[in-house]
Design a protein around this nucleic acid. Sequence first.
DNA 1: CAACCGCCCTGGGTGC
DNA 2: TGCACCCAGGGCGGTT
Length: 285
Amino acid sequence: MPELPEVETVRRGLADHVLGRTITEVEVFHPRSIRRHLTGAVDFAGRLVGHRVEAVSRRGKYLWAELSSAEALLAHLGMSGQMLIRPGSAPAEIHLRVRVRFADDGPELRFVDQRTFGGLSVEELTVVDGTTVPLPVAHIGRDPMDPLFDLEAVVAAMRRKRTEVKRALLDQNLVSGIGNIYADEALWRARLHWARPTDRLSVAKVRELLAAATEVMAEALVAGGTSFDALYVNTNGESGYFDRSLAAYGQEGLPCPRCGRPIRREPFMNRSSFSCPRCQPRPRS
DNA sequence: CAACCGCCCTGGGTGC
DNA sequence: TGCACCCAGGGCGGTT
């Protein structure tokens, strides 16, 4: 499940392999993978062919290549999206959705996505708060790895919300890049239950929580990200190994690394939240 | 407007 | 063995 560390790992791989290369051919094999490109596959390909990749950027879970056309190829990996760099001679992957070839005849870029929650589109760029981003990213908050991330502003905004702390942590408009895995890990590190109301947390506690989120994602980035199966891989098709370092997420019944009590699993927004019953007691309702 | 809910989608895993 | 069902989950549109 690609969150910030996984998307950043992919960004680095793309920067290594497609920067400076000119696109010559684009094939779309599944319309759903470009559903956010409203003008369709022909226009999608037409806006890419002939243009050079000038930068590969990221905000939160969004990834994009800035092109010599002054537009950007925007990608969101969803749950299972992969950006693979492969020789053109390699057999097509079962879930190959989009293929991009380059003028130098070197390795091609393949967007592979089993569950098709991810997708690509070509977007105009806009400047928000001094930073150039694709239009659909304009409303996405800066992520904690962004040099211009304003910690105190996010702490204040989070405490102004009237919601549960995990919902706030997952709100990409507030702070981006955090998904279910790193939200649970950050809450575990900060010893907060996911249902705690944000407006009753101290400034210090919210700071601690955001610091924990930043820290756990930085550690995961060093490990190449978190992979439970072959769904998340880098541009070379390799899995990360941060799953071995998870304290709470997916650890139901296993001992809490801090106190030894079995990690519990609770339903949360039609999915699951993992926490320690002793370190992260439920709030009194 | 803020908060929240349901839907989109596929295939690996599980239980009968 | 085979089938039905569950589950993962970010973003978005619709509703309260």
